[in-house]
Amino acid sequence: MTEAELRELAGKQAALGEVRGAPGPDPVNAPMIRHWLAAMGDTNPAYLDKGLAPPAMAQVWTMQAPRQGRSPVDDPMAALDGAGYTGVVATNCEQTYHRYARVGERLTPATRFTDLAGPKQTALGVGYFATWNVTWYGDGDEPVAEMLFRVLKFRPRQGAGEERPPYPLQPAVNQDTAFFWEGAKSGELRIQTCADCGRLRHPPGPLCTRCRSSHLTYTVASGHGTLYSYVVHHHPPVPGRETPFVVGVVELPEGVRVVGNVVGCPPGEVEIGMALRVAYRPMDDRLVLPMWIPEEP
């Protein structure tokens, strides 16, 4: 999706105005208030004494409300993901309390998509700031609380990190292998290919393993693969890594195998035969490693 298309979508969503969600599954109630106060370490007696909810609980009452249709926020978020702005970090949360919610009343949220600003250069990478507002209505249909919420959807940096320490596990690279590591930096999984006979080969070397030609180029792999084998590393500690971590041998439809980390799912859910797709992870300012995440079903 282009910048213009993103802007158009954001405008369309904002034009929807306020979209009501389902009411909270439970009315404002003392047990949940007591539980919340205990978890926060808040000993203020006023709430339970007066039958009022702590104001910062506003959102709590509708957290587990059933999904009712699409929120106006869903489509812009999906579009940003699709455009490569896969990173997300909340930047602002501004709540205004018109009054404290009363025990026994049921809150209903309503969401309005208000703004999409960008693309902007940020410390995390290029991204868009998306803003929406939620209003919680009480039993009398008057607003009890309002929230402005803003997130930065950013394109994770590849290579140029912010004061990142150098990753300790650097590959040795020479003229036979540099194309692979350059490819990873530009988001390509490059498989050495013989320019004469077309043979694909990984790991690469100076000569074609079939015809011994030194006229070598590369094919950009589809990025899909199947897990052929894997390990879960627990011990000893490895520099630059948090344990446990998973390393797999991935079989590509192009007919070669590649080793890489399997990420984005708990080690216990990794299994031989699972469908994977490549993802690129910058390790420091110089190195990007191709890793593998579970293919969406």
Binding site: W36, A39, G41, A56, Q59, A90
Partner: peptide
Amino acid sequence: ILTTMGLVQRYVTDWAGP
């Protein structure tokens, strides 16, 4: 984030009173 908001609220009311 909901906890962060809750702790901020608690911090201020701990000081200001019920």
